[in-house]
Write a protein that binds this DNA or RNA. Structure first.
Lengths: 355, 355
DNA sequence: TTGTAAGCGTTATCAT
DNA sequence: ATGATAACGCTTACAA
């Protein structure tokens, strides 16, 4: 039986290569850093051969220590089960590749304590910058970051008291777009369903935009409902409230369940909320729940298409890509006021809001 | 306007702390490493104060360089959009936390070239081990890893020619369980739908188990269909083939669409396949597609519950956790033959396979 | 109990 | 064109 990991015969170092090539470390270092012009073709060939023979790979840690930079950036993700995060991540990865960074992905899994831990860890590993999809808003836990600390770029939401660039959806325009769509389609009872929003800027903006969009007209009525995904009891209660509202409208309609008599729409502020609502509606009304209520959501998770719900798709890839570009500039020493980059959402109309 | 990142005033080093505390670096180092017994309370207090005053954080890179280990492990994920991966990741993170490792998460996004790049990168950063959810099977791209290289643990699938521990689902038992369920429910035409499986061990095992499970009986007929998710034309063709098969059975049934007359079941080998099928069926038959065909899937993505499809849930968290434990042992120098850890799947029965 | 000095694997400085 | 040599920030003999 072979041993999967026999006593590893210590990796070759630059010194080994120098000896093997019969030269000094300096020349090898020059070779590694592409300063080919100052190397005789002959020596260059010897070094190349030695590297091949020893299977030498330069130690990035040592490089980083000496150079004072390691091309590492941190990416702190609040919740990887949210497809939004994965989308952003892909943009981040692409940009890192293009700009020569290595992203260290950290997943806080919705735990503030994790967020703190990872931020601390990234700091001790001397990452050159961080992209933060923050959980909460407590400035304290983000202290090592931003103004005066590690360069940082925020994604999706701002953090109170933290001066930093930020990239995200143009929430106001997106929600306006979606609400107009619902009004055009003739829904006259619209429930905006959102997680507690006081402390999360993106949610706050979406809710405000929803109310603002309804202010300009009188035909439809708008309501905001707060959904506590983490609290089973509160959740139950809120869903029951929504059910009552939906059914009250039905009671007033003689021709139920004709498709074009629907008048109630639920507007989910993000994918987790949409999933929760879809689950509930499906459990309560069966597969044909869409005959009872319309559902629209910010975020366009993979299941939205097959569930046939209308969504506002966020440009997640671009958000991630842009965030890295911002960060790159800051790392390069660009100074100046914090910048915001708001990218537009795209309305994807599906069966759930058609009549 | 404030500058988000003013010229950072160089982070404090251990030397700075030593000077500030009026002592030598050694004592500070001892303090940092918890060798409190050899420090006079008085000195200890001075160091503590100095650290606080300078907001000192030890540089992990330098530590790692000197110590020869940096507590970093790599986690190479083939596809983060697959909820399976996110599940595994959460187990990995928990175990890392418990065992004192910092996971570097790398996302190959289904690109072999990315996989190669990241593996190379992890190697140059001198991670102490890697957990690999490999994409393909080409031994070449995994060369720096495993036998003789960096300690490695495989997740979900093996890699031909690579001797390493591996953790994953007990595919044979899981598929057997699911197939028996379908047989018990009286389906007599079962289509196992899977991505190209020759080169991916987990898919191969699932397909083989499916055929084996049908071998023991004669009532139901089993078919294996290969779905090429990446190739639109081939995909179309395959879906059409499935449609014909499903409808041929219907044609032979006079009492369509009475629910309990269904006799065809689709068995998706994983979540991406299941999503593709659900999308297609929904587009073709509308929201009530479940009256036409049954659907069962390995993997239990978040949308499975609300779509009401029966699944085999993989113990993703445990898989990730166990993988880190294995790796930890190897890093600690445990030798011996490569081990396999096969964890059981759980059958979650939902509406899609009820009668 | 405390401190000095060597060295981890690089790169930068300065000679040659 | 090439190569000693001194850092980078830390740990660890080895002294004192």
């Amino acid at each position: 039986m072979s041993h999967p990991h026999p006593a590893a015969p210590r990796r070759a170092t630059i010194t080994d290569v120098a000896r093997e090539a019969g030269t000094g470390k300096t020349s090898v270092s020059r070779y590694l850093n592409g300063e080919l012009s100052v190397l005789s073709p002959e020596l260059r060939a010897r070094i190349e051969a030695a590297i091949g023979r020893l299977d030498y790979q330069p130690n990035q840690m040592a490089r980083g220590l000496k150079r004072g930079r390691n091309r590492l950036i941190g990416m702190l993700v609040a919740d990887l089960t949210n497809p939004y995060s994965v989308g952003v991540l892909q943009g981040v990865e692409a940009a890192c590749q293009a700009l020569g960074y290595m992203p260290l992905i950290c997943h806080a899994a919705n735990e503030v304590e994790m967020e703190r831990r990872y931020l601390q860890l990234l700091s001790t590993y001397r990452v050159e910058g961080v992209i933060v999809n923050a959980l909460g808003v407590r400035e304290e836990t983000l202290r090592p970051v931003g103004d005066g600390g590690i360069p940082a770029v925020l994604v999706d939401r701002m953090v109170e008291g933290l001066v930093a660039d930020m990239v995200g959806l143009d929430n106001t325009a997106a929600v306006e777009l979606a609400t107009r769509h619902l009004l055009e389609r003739g829904f006259d009872d619209i429930w905006f369903v959102v997680q507690p929003f006081e402390r999360v800027s993106s949610r706050r903006l979406r809710e405000a935009a929803f109310r603002a969009a309804l202010d300009g007209q009188t035909r439809a009525r708008g309501h905001t409902v707060v959904l506590e995904l983490g609290d089973a009891a509160a959740l139950e209660e809120t869903l029951a409230e929504l059910d009552r509202a939906v059914e009250a409208v039905f009671a007033a309609q003689p021709d139920f369940p004709a498709t074009d008599s629907r008048r109630v729409a639920l507007f989910a502020a993000n994918a987790p909320v949409a999933l929760c609502l879809a689950r509930h509606l499906n459990a309560r009304h069966g597969a044909s729940w869409q005959e009872h209520v319309a559902l629209l959501s910010v975020d366009d998770p993979e299941w939205a298409e097959f569930a046939g719900i209308t969504t506002i798709r966020q440009p997640t890839y671009q958000i991630g890509y842009r965030a890295v570009e911002f960060l790159h500039e800051r790392i390069d020493g660009v100074e100046g006021a914090a910048r915001d980059c708001l990218l537009p959402g795209e309305l994807i109309v599906r069966a759930s809001t058609s009549r």
